[in-house]
Design a protein around this nucleic acid. Sequence first.
DNA 1: TATGGGGCTTCCATTAACTGGAAGGTCAAG
DNA 2: CTTGACCTTCCAGTTAATGGAAGCCCCATA
Lengths: 129, 129
Amino acid sequence: MNIGDAAKRAGLPAKTIRYYEDIKLIRPDRDANGYRAFNDKDLHKLTFLSRARALGFTIENCRALLALWEDQSRASADVKRIAGEHLAEIDRKIADLQSMRDTLGSLVQNCAGDGRPDCPILRGLEEPR
Amino acid sequence: MNIGDAAKRAGLPAKTIRYYEDIKLIRPDRDANGYRAFNDKDLHKLTFLSRARALGFTIENCRALLALWEDQSRASADVKRIAGEHLAEIDRKIADLQSMRDTLGSLVQNCAGDGRPDCPILRGLEEPR
DNA sequence: TATGGGGCTTCCATTAACTGGAAGGTCAAG
DNA sequence: CTTGACCTTCCAGTTAATGGAAGCCCCATA
């Protein structure tokens, strides 16, 4: 299978797939004409990557997860640890964003948003935390 | 005031301040010895930047907000529009993270996390969305 | 058989917002 | 006079791609 079809199936841009090969997340074979030839396993990995990236795992997390995925004898605890750490990080990010949202939301609410120059948003941004 | 003190007061690394000068967000004077000399207005801008960046505004947002901040005659509506758009973006990000969290959280919960190789997390990541 | 339009290849540059490090000038204390 | 903290510039690297140029390759149609 050529890169275009692999891209469609995995839901990733072809450019991204070439990049993943570049950083050695995948190593597809080549046809006689030099085109990349993706087999089922490659496709599986690409789908895995697409999904894991969408869940916010970093590339290095993905590399580790792929290694575990390929290792028939790995313990599920290893996987759970990586996923658990990532989960905690997501929770931190959500909390951060939530506090940003609260601050910015109240600034926006206090602003008249009319033609006058006085603006509580800018005033709020002037103050140190 | 030298960069080290400005950095402490604004709550930004000196490197970042140099970078902000590089991209022309600030233009501090120079002392005879070549050291940057920060005045109150510079410091004010740096504090503004520190705070706005912490609230997730992009550098280009900050540039626009600083221009409005320096413009005595701007309408608060202009500021409110930028802040409002940013607020909507934060809300989108929170929603995205929340859905990631839900998916990943349920994968993690179903994983025994013991020494056995079977792992619902990896199985879940194999499936297309 | 020519040609046109996709699709494929590599390579190089760019993005955002810094951060790290090297090499060297400046300053105040002891 | 030396030491150490601070300051300077410049260059490179980070993350995870993305954009674009130049040039093959393949298939269908005129």
